[in-house]
């Protein structure tokens, strides 16, 4: 089974983690994201998006699920891995005091998980004071230092703030939370990207449905040569001679499994809008997988 990509969203109390999580949960991204949160306190889902809400689980119409982690985060992660079907992506909300790196480390250790990065949310108005508070500074600084992305909430990314934060973490991507889109959250560790400073979600969704069979070798080659920026592809592909192929692509991981032959190939993909258009995806698929000009 393909490892489940896991992202940790960290940051001190009141930094704005839940605002980001609310956006991810209700986003129109076509991915079944499971979010483990400490509590449902500030989770805010539109009623028309709600499928069911239980003591510890909220299911959404877009396929996302939000669960509380209970007393033990790791047991909760174990339960997520035991879920069938598994979600496409796991996001963990670290507690306001937790070291996100210690949590994210499980994605490096556990063969069924894939490290997909740490997003540290920082309250731009509070961060200077917190970093000067001897009671709590070491833990706040640790949260900032381990982020692949540092998302600043509640104010603009002023040059002074930018300088402070880059001093604490030289490699992270710095952005305002409101400019951060889901695609960036999901591919956090793949190096600095040219982040678009637009308030709108800057990602492209692509889908394909068709009856033509594709053989495994061609599929593998096509997926390897997929357009830059198309970071997730998943679905079922109709193979030749009664074969069916299950596709899971996340970053560099390309996984092709065997399933019963579907009547149609059905694929969905997602990527950064600055690097990808649906048209380019169509062209790529038609040429390299279907081998049509």
């Amino acid at each position: 089974m393909t490892p489940l990509p896991m992202t940790v969203i960290g940051g001190y109390l009141g930094a704005g983690k839940t605002t980001l999580i609310n956006r991810i949960l209700s986003g129109d991204h076509g991915l079944r994201i499971l979010v483990l949160v400490n509590d449902f306190g500030a989770i805010n889902i539109d009623a028309d998006l709600l499928v069911s809400a239980k003591e510890d689980t909220i299911e959404l119409a877009n396929g996302c699920v939000c669960c509380t982690m209970g007393a033990d985060l790791f047991l909760a992660v174990g339960d997520v891995l035991d879920r069938r079907p598994r979600p496409d992506h796991l996001i963990i909300e670290a507690s306001g005091i937790a070291d996100p790196a210690r949590i994210a480390n499980v994605a490096q250790a556990e063969p069924d998980l894939d490290y997909a990065g740490i997003v540290t949310v920082v309250d731009g108005q509070q961060v200077q004071a917190l970093c000067a508070d001897p009671l709590i500074a070491p833990q706040v600084l640790g949260q900032i230092a381990c982020g692949d992305i540092i998302a600043v909430s509640k104010c603009d990314l002023s040059p002074a703030l930018r300088q402070t934060l880059s001093g604490l973490n030289t490699t992270a991507v710095l952005t305002r939370t409101q400019d951060l889109n889901i695609a960036q959250v999901l591919i956090a560790p793949q190096g600095p990207i040219d982040l678009p400073q637009t308030p709108h979600p800057a990602y492209t969704k692509w889908s394909f449905t068709g009856p033509d069979p594709v053989d495994r070798t061609a599929l593998q080659a096509a997926l390897r040569a997929r357009p830059e920026g198309l970071f997730r592809v998943k679905g079922q592909v109709r193979g030749p001679d009664g074969a069916g192929l299950l596709v899971q692509v996340a970053g560099r991981d390309i996984d092709i499994g065997d399933i019963e032959q579907p009547a149609q190939s059905q694929l969905v993909g997602i990527g950064l809008a600055t690097k990808l258009s649906a048209k380019a995806c169509d062209l790529w698929w038609t040429k390299s997988a279907l081998r049509k000009q």
Binding site: L73, L75, R102, P111
Partner: peptide, 16 residues
């Protein structure tokens, strides 16, 4: 620490 322990505990059925 738990992150490194978890894969082994999970596969040996240790559930607190």
């Amino acid at each position: 620490e738990m992150a490194a322990m978890f894969p082994v505990m999970r596969r040996t059925g240790i559930d607190f």
